[in-house]
C-alpha cells in the first residue's frame, strides 16, 4: 500500500478545516483554539497547529491530509509539514481582502511544491463574491510564477465531491509532471 501526504493551505477562513472534514474517511484530529481576532475573521475558533485526516483512494492508496494554520505567525508549521508533502491544495476565499495576492503568497511560500507541479488552487466563497474569476487567478499566477497551468477550481469545501475532484486532479497532475520529468531525463541521457 502506498501512503502520501497532501497539505491543505490558505488564509484564515478559507475553509481548510472544513475541507479536511469533508474528505477524511476517519475522525479528524483538530487543534483548534479560541479565535481572538474576531475583528479580522469572524469565526469562533482557529487552527493553531494542524488538522489531520486520511482518505483511501481505491484499496491501495492512502492519502494523509494535513491542514496547516492560515495565520502567518504559524509559518513554522508550514516548513515542518512541507518537507513530507507530495502535493498541496491551496484554498483561497474569494471574499478575502486581496485574494489574488494571497494565492501568489502561498505559491511563493510553498515554492518547492509549486515548482514541481504539485499545487492546485480551490477558490471558495465565490457565491458570496463572484470576482475575481477563475480566469483572473490563472492569469495572475502565470504572471507571477514560471510554471503556467496550475489547476484552479471553484469549490465548496463542505462538498466531499468537490474536494475529491480536486484531490484527484492534483494527484493526476503530479503523476503527469513526474512523467514529463522522466521523459526529459531520458531524452537528455
Amino acid at each position: 500500500m502506498s501512503e502520501n501526504v497532501i497539505l491543505i493551505a490558505g488564509p484564515m477562513g478559507a475553509g481548510k478545516t472544513t475541507a479536511i472534514r469533508s474528505l477524511s474517511d476517519s475522525e479528524v484530529v483538530s487543534t483548534e483554539a479560541d479565535n481572538t481576532e474576531m475583528d479580522r475573521v469572524n469565526k469562533p475558533t482557529t487552527t493553531v497547529a494542524l488538522d489531520y485526516g486520511e482518505i483511501m483512494l481505491g484499496d491501495e492508496d492512502k492519502i494523509k491530509l494535513y491542514g496547516v494554520p492560515g495565520q502567518r505567525r504559524f509559518d513554522f508549521m508550514w516548513r515542518i509539514l512541507e518537507k513530507r508533502a507530495l502535493g498541496l491544495i491551496v484554498l483561497i476565499n474569494n471574499d478575502a481582502e486581496d485574494p489574488l495576492g494571497e494565492v501568489v503568497y502561498f505559491m511563493e511560500q510553498f515554492s518547492s511544491i509549486y515548482q514541481r507541479g504539485g499545487m492546485v488552487v480551490g477558490v471558495t466563497r465565490s457565491d458570496i463574491k463572484p470576482e475575481p474569476t477563475i480566469g483572473d487567478y490563472v492569469i495572475h499566477m502565470d504572471e507571477h510564477g514560471p510554471h503556467a497551468g496550475v489547476p484552479t477550481f471553484t469549490v465548496d469545501p463542505r462538498s466531499k465531491d468537490h474536494m475529491v475532484m480536486m484531490l484527484y486532479s492534483l494527484l493526476m497532475n503530479i503523476e503527469a509532471n513526474q512523467g514529463v520529468q522522466q521523459d526529459v531525463r531520458v531524452s537528455q541521457g
Partner: peptide, 8 residues
Amino acid sequence: SMTSSMQA
C-alpha cells in the same frame, strides 16, 4: 505561536 501549537 509555537507554545500555542504545542499545547494544542
